[in-house]
């Protein structure tokens, strides 16, 4: 189960990995790598300060975008349909339910489950596209 690539093994002291050695991301050359725009993948202390989004910019932006879209859906089905719009939706019949009530007590929960699986699957694809996915075991 465990990988034994010792170069990537986390140091043993809890604070140890804070030391600026290349414990993360052995950047792969040539590919659309996160760190390829950086001077060094190891983040040596001498390096100039970077703004937050820079190092893994493209990957991180794709990640944030996906998260934002999914959280928008999350907000609309729960706070939107289940709470803010519950009165107007309740005028619509949905099988034996009032629609607003159904979203509040059933529908939103189903959507939550789907959202997480969609996130998990799409992130896996994004990880692969930017070559930051985890090694197969």
């Amino acid at each position: 189960m465990q990988l034994t690539i010792s170069a990537r093994r986390m140091p043993t002291t809890p604070m140890g990995f804070l030391s600026p050695v290349g414990v993360y991301l052995p950047a792969t050359e040539g590919k659309e790598s996160l760190l390829s725009d950086e001077k060094s993948s190891g983040g040596s202390p001498a390096q100039p300060r970077r703004s937050p989004a820079q190092p893994n910019s493209a990957y991180w932006r794709a990640n944030l975008k996906l998260g934002a879209v999914l959280l928008l859906i999350w907000f609309v089905v729960s706070f939107g349909f289940g709470i803010l719009l519950v009165e107007p939706l309740n005028r619509i019949a949905f099988f034996g339910f009032k629609l607003g009530f159904w979203w509040a007590q059933q529908g939103s929960i189903f959507v939550f489950v789907v959202l997480i699986f969609v996130y998990s699957a799409l992130m896996k694809r994004i990880d692969k596209r930017f070559d930051v996915h985890e090694e197969e075991e």
Binding site: Q2, L3, T4, I5, R8, R9, M10, P11, T12, F17, V23, Y24, L25, L34, G43, P55, N56, Y59, W60, N63, D127, V132, H133, E134, E135, E137
Partner: peptide, 13 residues
């Protein structure tokens, strides 16, 4: 930056 990318987590401490 280290925690923002998945690779490398499979090697547990």
């Amino acid at each position: 930056h280290h925690i923002r990318v998945p690779r490398g987590a499979a090697t547990p401490q």
